[in-house]
Design a protein around this nucleic acid. Structure first.
Lengths: 339, 339
DNA sequence: GAAAGTTACTCAACCGCTTAAGCCCTGAAG
DNA sequence: CTTCAGGGCTTAAGCGGTTGAGTAACTTTC
């Protein structure tokens, strides 16, 4: 039950505490033979460095933080985060770094959490998700000088790392596909307009539709919940010139749309094609299964962690681009109905 | 950017470091006036205790750990964990305690993570979910003497806290309801047989069915994935005396079952009633919406954290029972079809 | 063979905070 | 006028590591 300290190891090895420290950290200053002896004793005693002591002198917390700023219910259904987190940890645990998680309701609370963590020296760096176009966390991070990586497009002066996928290309390929299927009235049900990637995707969508000469496209903004997804879908499908294809910003809303179509007697994919912006088991779970933009979220998390750890190590912030999401075609998209 | 330490506060207040420590911790030994002055300065300087220093002397890490031992894909779809975690944090953040999260593939890795955390003194206690009937983590926790709380039924000698809901009563009420609707052939698609609560629920189910004089009930075991849920459902529905009602151990499998019924041309709820063992947005997202056993998972997390923090504080381990899950009736259950 | 350089250590300060023990002062009790 | 008790501080010893400076013994250099 008692902690094994390096003092104990030193005693048994008959050397000083300092020597043990050098030996255990692979630094020069001890002979190979002594080092081996010390390592052997440490191993036999099951020694592990006390994180607190290490942090105190080394000024590294050996943890990074992730603050999720979303209402709990939204988080629940989105399979995204758990996969992302498990990707993060794949990298972190290899580097002996812990992940501190905090789930808060809004950005103000997130900023508070960040300040507290940093002041307490609980974390060495931060992972930021759900970036807003105007993001209250960024100035705080700059002010404090916290190493941080954005799960999203690069921003500002390159002081922060960034890991992102090319949403524009992904949206392009979706629109191209639908147009090739003969669709001319394509609408989009977007997520929170304050979010950075919502803007990027909406802009990409608008550009793609215009490029195909289909006129000003219709875009409805929502808060990502199934309720708003259903409402938006109802609104779009109630118009006389209703769309024959709709792109959704996430999977949950696309599933909700499936029900709305059914309730309104509109066949999917016969009369309406539905395309989900995120892929997950959810898309496979419903009928028809949803065509979706899919990508490797676990790899996303892993790379995000890697970039962050490099920064914590003092290396320069990198910006890493993930493989562009690809369209996984399932049963919810088909040729446009004849006019 | 520089850290504010109590030394700095001491200097400005013109007292010793010790006095500052007493003042900031609300311990006796300083006059009210001095205390006020010190607090004021600390506040002005934005002082926060260094966690590392506190941990080192106080030997408390001010963090608790949660190891999730499941393949990443299973975690993704289940809305359970995010809600549970956000419940945990509601309590933890109020007590200035961090949540360390680790997602690993299996129990062996979980045990390793626990040993490491404890040896490094990274955590003060643990939350254990997904308890197995034979659980490799329990002997390790006993050996190390880690305070831990079970998200599940109490076990062993009461050294561990436990927070749980009465699954037996919940299953009883489901069966009673289906029997009242006229169902006589009721089956169950259960989760991982190694899990403790799977066993409890299966036993409760069997007892309830027998109590109603419906003969030995049919139970199929799965691994909780939609694929296995579908397979199990297909098997059950392919029998000549197919069930008219099926209880599922989670929501994901129940949703998968909906598709199987559709694919086999069996009407839900006309010919088959489906009841999900977990409730979530998922149940509302599909058509027909799923009747489910619902309960407050966030409260579950909150109480779990509370029991754990009490233990970390040295108070005795408690066992807290949540409110029994109640049946939320939606569109997937109806009167049994006429013979 | 003396000066200089290496090697393999030891020493001790330090990280920021907690806390037992000690000290000085004031006021009440004897 | 002592004695004692407490209040209000200060002192200093940890907690378990890291790390620069110091040192003794041994090798190399010319």
């Amino acid at each position: 039950m008692k902690r094994v300290t390096i003092g104990e190891i030193a005693e048994r090895a008959g050397v000083s505490i300092g020597a043990v420290s050098y030996a255990l950290n692979g630094r020069p200053g001890v002979s190979e033979e002594t080092r081996r002896r010390i390592l052997e004793i440490a191993d036999r005693l099951g020694w592990r460095p006390s994180l607190a002591a290490r942090s105190l002198s080394g000024s590294r917390a050996h943890s990074v933080g992730l603050v999720l700023a979303r209402p709990a219910d939204t988080l629940g259904v989105e399979p995204f985060f758990m996969r992302f987190i498990s990707g993060l940890e794949r990298e972190l645990s290899g580097q002996r770094t812990g992940l501190l998680l905090q789930v808060v309701a809004d950005h103000a609370a997130a900023v508070e959490a960040i300040r507290l963590w940093w002041a307490e020296r609980r974390v060495d760096g931060l992972v930021l998700t759900d970036l807003y176009a105007q993001d209250a966390r960024l100035p705080v991070i700059a002010e404090l000088g916290v190493p941080a990586v954005l799960a999203g497009r690069p921003r500002g002066d390159g002081a922060l790392g960034a890991v992102w996928a090319d949403d524009t290309a992904a949206v392009d390929s979706s629109v191209d596909y639908l147009v090739a299927l003969g669709h001319r009235r394509i609408a989009r049900v977007a997520g929170l307009p304050a979010l950075d990637h919502t803007r990027v995707r909406v802009a990409a969508f608008r550009a793609a539709v215009l490029r195909h000469g289909l006129g000003e496209p219709r875009v409805v903004e929502t808060d990502y919940t199934p309720e708003e997804g259903a409402r938006a879908t109802r609104a779009l499908l109630s118009r006389p010139d209703r769309p024959t294809a709709i792109l959704y910003d996430n999977d949950v809303m696309a599933v909700a749309a499936l029900n709305v179509a059914q309730e309104m007697g509109i066949a999917v994919p016969g009369e309406l094609s539905i395309l989900a912006g995120d892929d997950s088991q959810l898309c496979v779970l419903v009928r028809p299964a949803l065509t979706a933009l899919s990508w490797d979220i676990q790899a996303y998390g892993l790379h995000t962690a890697r970039v962050l750890l490099e920064m914590v190590d003092g290396r320069p912030a990198r910006s890493h681009q993930e493989r562009t999401p690809v369209l996984t075609v399932r049963g919810s998209t088909a040729a446009a109905p004849a006019e």
